[in-house]
Amino acid sequence: MGTPTPLESRLSRVKTPGEPIIVFERVFLAFGDNVILKDISFELRAGFTKIFLGASGAGKSTILKLILGLLKPQTGKIWVNGVRVDTLSESDMMKVRDDVGMVFQEGALFDSLSVRENVGYKLYEESDMDLNDVHRRVEEVLGWVELEEHIDKMPSQLSGGQRRRVAIARAMTFQPRILLYDEPTTGLDPITSITIDDEIVKLRDIEGVSSLVVTHQLRDAFWVAERMAVRGPDGKVQIVPASPEKLAQTEFVMLRDGLIAFEGTASELRANNDPYLQLFLS
């Protein structure tokens, strides 16, 4: 065993806030002649949020699939929770996924299962938890997203916004430390989108979840970056403008032509004079 590199020693402290929980190092991915990601390197630190922006087909969702091991890169290295996942087998990847929740585009709820079964899926099917405890946890997370009264409905009976909130509940049921959001507000009206954004903010600030959000909805991206959740004196969670410290914990990443065109905070993004970024922001 040689001396650990600076990155390796930081990865070994992965449970410490501020240390890297997801690391991409020179990742390249192509499907045939179609190059999706050319040379992607970034870090998501524990307790922080990264928001990926970019045009359709820029490779934003692909990054989430790489983190979950649903795709493998051709070259480059990926660490999740201190484990290198780009070389892991599917069965070993299952252990890594125990600490990563994902909210898919359109929710990807299981059509044949009720809201209760969808939300508790992992605990019902993949854990030895007592059934009463599972029921209690399902009710608790549905209460968190304010959908308790819909517990016995089927996904087809829910509205688009409710489906996304159930998907968020499903992703947080097993209390992962990392949550990945793939276009969580696409196709929703502005009011419903804000309820989803608030859930993302609450999970980050109250539950301490590290988040990676993929979106091309700028309004939602800035809402998540510039708001924070705090508990009021009555114990209720309130969404308020973010403190300077909290603002620094959310970074934007702009993907363009398979490369990172920009990486920085919300204010740095607004101040950037790059014509492409300006066009994107306009």
Binding site: K65, L68, L70, E90, S91, M94, R97, D98, V100, G101, M102, F104, Q105, E106, A108, L109, F110, D111, Y121, K122, E125, E126, R170
Partner: peptide, 22 residues
């Protein structure tokens, strides 16, 4: 096929279930 195109198979894998087994 419907499950595949609506990402439900990926959701299964993300939740720690092997779609071949399940």
């Amino acid at each position: 096929g419907s499950m595949a195109v609506t990402d439900q198979l990926n959701a299964l894998r993300a939740l720690g279930t092997d779609p071949v087994r399940k």
